[in-house]
C-alpha cells in the first residue's frame, strides 16, 4: 500500500501494540502444547540458543563445537583415524551395527562422512561387497568401548565379527 501515513499517530500506536501482541503470541503462547507450532519451533531453533549463548560462547575450541553437534559421529572417527596404519584398509561396519551402540544414527559408517570428519583414508563401506575382502582392519564396538581389530588379533575372530556385521544389517 503506497499511502504514506504519519509515523506517530494514535492509530499507528494501537497497530504497533497489536504487532507486539502478535509477535508475543506467535513465539510464546502454547510452546509446550501442539496448538502453536511457531512457539515450539522458535524455542528450539532460536530461544534455546539465546538462553545458552553465554555458556556456548565459552566453547572456543572447534573440536568442542564439533562434539556438541555431532557427538559420537565426531568422536569415533577422531579415535579411529590416528590409530590406522599406513598399510591398513579399513572396513566400515554397516550403520545398523553402529546404531546398536549410539543414540544417534551412526553416520560415521558412511565413507563420505568419515572423510569429512578426518580426511582421506583407505576405507571401504560394508555395502561394497565386491571390495570387502580387500579390507584388513575392522572396527569393533562394545558398550563404551571401541577398537580396531586386524586379522590374527588374539582378542577377536574377524569372521565372527563379519557375521555380526551381516546380522546387524
Amino acid at each position: 500500500m503506497t499511502d504514506r501515513l504519519p509515523l506517530m499517530s494514535r492509530q499507528g500506536a494501537i497497530l504497533a501494540i497489536i504487532m507486539v501482541g502478535v509477535i508475543y503470541a506467535l513465539i510464546s503462547i502454547g510452546a509446550d502444547s501442539e496448538v502453536n507450532p511457531y512457539a515450539a519451533s522458535y524455542q528450539s531453533r532460536i530461544g534455546l540458543y539465546a538462553e545458552k549463548r553465554d555458556s556456548l560462547n565459552k566453547r572456543r575450541q572447534m573440536s568442542e563445537r564439533m562434539f556438541a553437534r555431532h557427538v559420537a559421529n565426531f568422536e569415533i572417527p577422531q579415535y579411529i583415524a590416528p590409530r590406522l596404519r599406513s598399510t591398513d584398509t579399513l572396513l566400515l561396519p554397516p550403520m545398523s551395527y553402529g546404531n546398536r551402540y549410539m543414540r544417534d544414527n551412526a553416520y560415521w559408517t558412511d565413507p563420505r562422512f568419515f572423510t569429512w570428519m578426518v580426511g582421506f583414508h583407505n576405507v571401504i563401506p560394508w555395502n561394497d561387497a565386491a571390495r570387502r575382502s580387500q579390507a584388513n582392519a575392522y572396527i569393533v564396538l562394545e558398550p563404551n568401548m571401541i577398537w580396531i581389530a586386524r586379522r590374527g588379533s588374539r582378542n577377536i575372530n574377524i569372521d565372527s565379527l563379519l557375521t555380526e556385521y551381516g546380522r546387524a544389517q
Binding site: R4, L7, G12, A13, L15, A16, I18, M19, I23
Partner: peptide, 9 residues
C-alpha cells in the same frame, strides 16, 4: 515510509 508497526516487526 516506515510505520511504528514496521519498526516493531
Amino acid at each position: 515510509s516506515l510505520s511504528l508497526a514496521d519498526i516493531v516487526t
